[in-house]
């Protein structure tokens, strides 16, 4: 994540709060989260074989995987967005597919198409590359809205409908998409309906000086590079399903549910916002907070979990008014303002 970013939610804030598995033994979690912690640590270890730094990014990606959500990675070229997504997919022993979005890409290139078989005199559906457990969509915002629309059903309902026939996706099904900032040449803004289907939008920033030196040292000594063969799969689809079931059983104090609803609801009433977040954002915030709490060794959610994830869940779901944009504000600024305005349940 952005370590030297002036944004309010930079790496300094991304650091885990001083709580977690090291809590008093008398109040240890009632749920055994040791398996989850072990798997998470193994994935982190595999990622760190190639990726230098980006610990917060790795934690958020794991959170999204556990929360059964899709992730949109945004950053300028060369900050290892695609590499990180590929590595994460490699740590999971599930089917993987990669799509390079281009301006001339058609929906059938993504979903698949029905082919006529002359010998049988019938049509047969040929699945597209979307039929995989981990789908990496590279440069997603280089395809037009027509192709983006093809992803609406599959991202939300985990199925596609072709010629009146429903084709369900395998479980797990996660879309990891990368994009350049919309100010970059040849990019388009994704439709709001599609953005809303991403659990998180993670801004991938530049590494720190120390991290960049470490990247150079690794490359110079021949240990670095991008040899993906060094990364091993450490989590099966069955393991992942079990961990997700465990995450769903996390405790959430009722006041925290109200807190989440108030945070998201405030985006709809904020004068600086043209478009507020949807109820799907509330669900995303809840699911994400449960997964993050589990990753941090707790079987319950705290307000810190919600606050920590709020910018990642909300920044792509809200639209600033033109006045706010002209004043130089960002979505993160407004989210931070909202977080600071809402009373924390205690």
């Amino acid at each position: 994540m952005e370590n030297n970013s002036p944004l309010p939610f930079s790496a300094a804030d991304d650091a885990a709060p001083e709580t977690g598995a090291a809590a008093t033994s008398a109040f240890a979690p009632r749920t055994d989260l040791s398996g989850l912690s072990r798997h998470a640590e193994a994935i982190r270890q595999e990622l760190s074989k190639i990726i230098v730094g980006q610990h917060a990014l790795a934690e958020l990606l794991l959170t999204a995987i556990l929360a059964d959500g899709h992730v949109l990675l945004e950053g300028v070229p060369g900050v290892a967005k695609t590499l990180t997504a590929k590595l994460l997919a490699r740590t999971l022993a599930v089917s993987f597919s990669r799509l390079q979005f281009t301006p001339d890409l058609m929906p059938s290139d993504v979903l698949g198409t029905s082919v006529f078989l002359p010998n049988k005199s019938e049509f047969e559906f040929r699945p597209g590359p979307i039929f995989a457990s981990i789908v990496l969509i590279d440069e997603i915002n280089r395809a037009p809205a027509k192709t983006q629309s093809a992803l609406f059903e599959v991202m939300e309902e985990r199925q596609i409908t072709q010629d009146g026939t429903r084709y369900p996706m395998t479980d797990p099904f996660v879309v990891l998409a990368t994009q350049n900032p919309i100010e970059q040449e040849g990019t388009y803004r994704l439709p709001e309906a599609q953005l809303d289907r991403f659990l998180f939008k993670l801004n991938v920033g530049y590494p720190t000086l120390e991290e960049e030196v470490a990247i150079l040292q690794g490359h110079h000594s021949g240990l670095g590079g991008t040899s993906l063969e060094r990364v091993q799969a450490v989590l099966t689809a069955d393991d992942l399903r079990q961990l997700r079931a465990q995450v769903q059983r996390q405790h959430v104090e009722p006041k925290l549910l109200e807190y989440i609803a108030r945070l998201v609801g405030q985006t709809r009433a904020h004068k600086g916002l043209y478009l507020g977040a949807s109820p799907r954002a509330s669900l995303s915030l809840l699911n994400g907070a449960k997964a993050l709490a589990a990753l941090r060794g707790r079987d319950f959610v705290t307000p810190e979990d919600v606050q920590y994830l709020a910018p990642h869940v909300l920044r792509h779901r809200i639209l600033l008014t033109p006045e706010r944009e002209m004043e130089g504000h960002t979505a993160d600024d407004v989210v931070q303002q909202i977080v600071q305005q809402i009373e924390v349940p205690r």
Binding site: T19, A22, A23, T24, F27, H251, E253, F300, T302
Partner: peptide
Amino acid sequence: RELTQQFEYVWYGEQNDLSAAQ
């Protein structure tokens, strides 16, 4: 920080069946 962790485990963790010893 220790007190804070205790409070969070008990309150946000909804430990309604806390024993006298705990």
